[in-house]
Design a binder for these strands. Structure first.
Length: 426
RNA sequence: GGAAGAGUGGCAGAGCUGGUUUAAUGCACCGGUCUUGAAAACCGACGUACCUUAACGGGUACCGGGGGUUCGAAUCCCUCCUCUUCCGCCA
């Protein structure tokens, strides 16, 4: 969420930046609501102040056994006004918050305008494999090698689910293990969060109300708190410190988590995304930083470097792009995507998204920190990066490393886990 | 699942028969005096958010969350959440 004060004081700048990602930008609405809301609030506080004062006088009169009925009826009148004003103030504040949370984050000046077509490739690693035989797509490869059972997966979970079996399950697990071990060794705090999150966490992360349709909601019995299945562990990690004030020396906090990601993906299934390119459940290791504002730029580069290193260790051909304003998530100031080459599709598919939110997420989740000796608190900066999403890597690995005889070479770092260098046809 | 108890400022802990308590007191932290320095002692400051003011300052809200009673709620009532202890069930 943006700071209404900042919008007020830097209107021209905010308009220039936001128009990169919003077409019909109209700041008048929020600014107007803010003025009205402040006016009503000030009036209301004055009334309350009056009431508090008179009530004290009543207390004094009562203690002295004197008559206070005149004052009591005065307060009664004030209370009627307070009731009216409270309703007005509440509704104005709600509207303001509502309008304010519709605004996306201010894009970083480096971010190109417009949509996808303006994404800038900033790095390419490796080369597209050239096959001197008829290469298969990952669905055929996974089926022939008995890595994934698509049909029985659908039997279990319905469309959009698959079942890892045998070496396939081991390969997926090896990837997750490799990533988690790497982050753990590098001093990141390992977190295994609950997969069912309270709705409050969805609001703080900005998923709700806008993207409420994209997650699985859990119907609960009356009286229970509403929960949803996490769409990414980013939602969980961000909320770990929700409503807290951290000390300067606690920062930076570098954490990572593994969880399946559950997404409803309504209306987004496409034939070219068969197999496990897009499903309702996929595995992802997520890195997260909470930093002081002055340290967030360095953290962004650390995260990009880490995600790229994992790709390079696996030997996969990929590219890194700086996303254009409209292609990136609205809460982020700047986002880089790492995309892996899927030979059968002839395109690159996202396996990591590395983003800097600045204080946008922290403001919404109320995560602050206090500098040593400082009087007041500041919002900290948050960054997140997949490191990495495995369910798209497995298809990339089998496709990029397939051999003429139908076997697949296992990337070096995974060989110890699997106990094999080649996955052969059964 | 059943029963009982409890949730107060960084921590501990009063207040909880409603109104001089603006949330006492202690500890911690911070500033100062003293000291060669430190400790001790003493003095002072010491929550968060928002509104208002050029500034000093003033105001409002917050005692787990929400709602209610009242002129007035940390204090009374309702409800939800969390924790502790005991019983039951259980991977």
């Amino acid at each position: 969420m943006l700071d209404i004060k900042f919008i007020k004081q830097n209107r021209a700048q905010v308009e220039a930046l936001l128009s990169k990602r919003v077409d019909d930008l109209d700041l008048d609405k929020v600014l107007d609501l803010d003025v009205k809301s402040k006016k009503v609030t000030t009036d209301l506080e004055k009334l309350r102040s009056d009431r508090n004062q008179i009530s004290k006088q009543i207390g004094q009169l009562k203690r002295n056994k004197e008559d206070s009925t005149a004052l009591e009826s005065d307060v009664q009148k004030i209370n009627d006004l307070i009731k009216e004003q409270t309703e007005a103030a509440t509704s104005l504040k709600e509207n303001l918050l509502n309008e304010l949370s519709k605004l996306p984050n201010l894009p970083d000046p480096r971010v190109p305008e417009g949509g996808k077509e303006n994404n800038q490739v900033v790095k390419t690693y490796g080369e597209k494999p050239v096959f001197d035989f008829k290469n298969k797509d990952h669905v055929d490869l996974c089926t022939d090698l008995k890595l994934i059972d698509y049909e029985r997966g659908v039997k279990l979970g319905g469309a959009g689910f698959w079942l890892y079996t045998g070496v396939g399950a081991a390969l997926e697990w090896a990837l997750l293990n490799y990533f988690c071990t790497t982050h753990f060794k590098d001093g990141y705090t390992f977190m295994l969060p609950p997969h069912l999150l309270l709705n409050a966490n969805g609001y703080a992360a900005g998923q709700f109300p806008k993207f409420a349709g994209e997650v699985f909601h859990l119907k609960t019995e009356e009286g229970d708190q509403e929960r949803f299945l996490l769409p990414t562990s980013e939602t969980a990690i961000l909320n770990v410190y929700r409503d807290e004030v951290l000390n300067e020396e606690d920062l930076p906090i570098k954490a990572f988590a593994y969880s399946p990601c559950y997404r409803s993906e309504r209306g987004s299934s496409r034939t070219e995304e068969r197999g496990c390119i897009r499903g309702h459940q996929f595995n992802k290791v997520e890195m997260f930083h909470f930093t002081k504002p002055e340290d967030s730029e360095a953290a962004l580069h650390e995260l990009i470097g880490r995600a790229e290193q994992l790709m390079e260790d696996l030997g996969l051909h990929y590219r890194t792009s700086l996303l254009a304003a409209k292609d990136a998530s609205a809460s982020m100031a700047i986002t880089y995507d790492i995309e892996v080459w899927i030979p059968s599709m002839g395109i690159y598919k996202e396996v990591s998204s590395i983003s800097l939110a600045n204080e946008f997420q922290a403001r919404r989740a109320k995560i602050r920190f206090k500098r040593k000796g400082a009087k007041s608190t500041e919002f900290l900066h948050t960054l997140n990066a997949s490191g990495l999403a495995t369910s798209r890597l497995l298809p990339a690995i089998v496709e990029q490393f397939q051999q003429a005889d139908g076997s697949v070479l296992v990337p070096k770092p995974l060989q110890p886990w699997l106990g094999m260098e080649v996955i052969k046809l059964p």
